[in-house]
Amino acid sequence: MLGTDQILDDEFLLRRLHPPEIAPESVVPRSDGGFRATSVRMRLREGEEGLSVTRAVLTSPRQLLNLLLLQNLSPAGWRVCRFTVEEVRSLGLMVRPDPLPEDAGHCLIVGTSEVAYTKKMSSKLAEFTRVLSPQEII
């Protein structure tokens, strides 16, 4: 079994993005084509411990969207963005395993004693993201 405390640099992390039909804009074009998440979508709520993400090696993009059903939300139209553990660590942030009963791959991106998870960090993290195409949602 793949250990949850050993998260490799080249692993992908996933985060859901709400559908475009919902008013707030969640994606912007990437400079090299495609789309990325807006920085606001990578922000923490006040008092939130870390940014919720999922390890793609344990939870697929489709599974991540299907988890919406547990919140009485329809997965239709929702998107998933992807970035690597290495990119998170390059900012000095940590990826901490936080498995949930319904999502074994759940992790939190958290700051450290040296590096806080600031708005600046959320902007830099957003720059790394790439929104998956519908064909990649499997």
């Binding site: 969640s26 400079s31 807006t38 606001v40």
Partner: peptide, 17 residues
């Protein structure tokens, strides 16, 4: 861009590369 923060505030965004 028009968005909202997780804390419930409106957020306006600009970028020029």
């Amino acid at each position: 861009t028009i968005s909202a923060t997780p804390d419930g505030f409106v957020s306006l965004g600009w970028g020029n590369g």
